[in-house]
Amino acid sequence: MPQQVLTANRLSDGAVVFLDAEGRWSERIAAARVAEKADAQALTNAGEATAAEVVAPYLIDVTLEAEGPRPLRYRERIRAFGPSIHPEFAK
C-alpha cells in the first residue's frame, strides 16, 4: 500500500512545499508527514488549517527511503528535488 504526502506551492513565492508533522508547510520533503493512502484524508484535513498560505494542495504517492519520502512519479521527484538540469537549485 503506497504512502502519501500532501504537497502544494506556497502562495507568496511559489516554492514547492510539503505538509509536515506540525501542520506547517516545509520546503523539504524529508520533513513531510506521511500517511497511508487509506488515511490520506487526515492529511488533507490537516492542511486545511493553513490552506491560505498555499495554492492547490494535492496528495502524491511516495515510497519511504532512508533519506525520507521519495515520490513515485518522476514529475513529482523533479518538483521535490529540483530541475534535473540545474543541480545548483537542488534541494
Partner: peptide, 28 residues
C-alpha cells in the same frame, strides 16, 4: 487582494495570467 486572502486562487488566476504570471512545477 490575493495575498490577503480576499481573492481566491480561482478569482485571481485570470488576472495573474493576463499579466504573464504562471504557476509552474517549482515556482511562479
Amino acid at each position: 487582494r490575493r495575498l490577503s486572502g480576499e481573492l481566491t486562487e480561482e478569482e485571481f488566476r485570470p488576472h495573474r495570467l493576463m499579466n504573464g504570471l504562471y504557476l509552474q512545477l517549482h515556482a511562479y
